[in-house]
Design a protein around this nucleic acid. Structure first.
Lengths: 142, 142
DNA sequence: GTTGGTTGTAACAGAAGATGTTGCAACGAG
DNA sequence: CTCGTTGCAACATCTTCTGTTACAACCAAC
């Protein structure tokens, strides 16, 4: 499959909301966000729905509706975004159960789970150390 | 799609070869390996083909053929296995190019590449610290 | 040199998941 | 009430992975 871009889309959306907030614009519609990400507004609404359920953004419905950040951009880490969009773990175990009559088949899943857990925790630590405010700052430099 | 299990399959295969080697069996056929992983021999041959191209296993063809490790199990890290099977990076950037007229659309890709790079390097460090011998030891404990 | 077991690989089917699109009900500020 | 916007279902398309069948290439053993 193509790599998972949901974290990228969600971070892009939040960064855009953070910039709008800083510039005094209160809310953005999914159409406006979609224009920056260059995709369909429904894709954006799906992503924003995930972020709303995680408490990272707020929505106002009806006429003049739109989205805004629920917290300061310094207080939103990429790890929260990652978990909000339910991104895939990088490694998967066997699709079909290995042969349990074989000593390797019997013991390899817990052994691999341990290794994969260490690798994923290391990755999550890095994501936890980066906030939307960090991404916005880096983005405006480029 | 389901998470990528290629690293799991390849590690299972190598662990099984390491155990066979330790027990004095010189080579294993793809049928024998497939019986432990509980899948089709062609899947195993595809995985072993990747590992052979990376120099991690050796093959003997013809009658009485089969596979063996090219190095001691202590000298094969999961990072090498990961790269040998060309596993997907955990994060992907946008499928379609963002709107370059927007300051966020313009700068977000390099900003995210940096963050993603840090996270992937942390993950790779953990994989580099684990060898097939480590996995075999952990496997036999369970 | 023939035989027979094994690898290497192409071709294809099916399942799963992501993205993108359309359509429409629900909502609520003005 | 109106109208712009969200929420969401349904569907099409594309891609990738797993699994399967089939067969040529290979080579040790005899």
């Amino acid at each position: 499959m193509a790599a998972n871009s949901r974290l990228t889309i969600a971070t892009h959306v939040l960064t855009w909301l953070a910039l709008a907030q800083r510039d005094g614009r209160e809310v953005l519609t999914s159409d406006q966000v979609a224009a920056s990400v260059n995709t369909n507004p429904v894709i954006i609404r799906r992503s924003l729905g995930d972020l709303r359920r995680a408490g990272l953004v707020e929505v106002r419905r009806g006429a003049g509706a739109g989205w805004s950040l629920a917290r300061a951009p310094e207080e939103i880490s990429l790890l929260e975004v990652h978990d909000a969009v339910d991104a895939e773990p990088p490694f998967g175990l066997h699709h079909t159960e290995p042969n349990l009559e074989c000593p390797v088949g019997r013991g390899i899943r817990p052994a691999l789970s341990e290794v994969y857990g260490r690798a994923e925790r290391a990755m999550r630590r890095e994501l936890a150390d980066t906030s939307i405010a960090d991404v916005l700052r880096e983005t405006l430099v480029n």
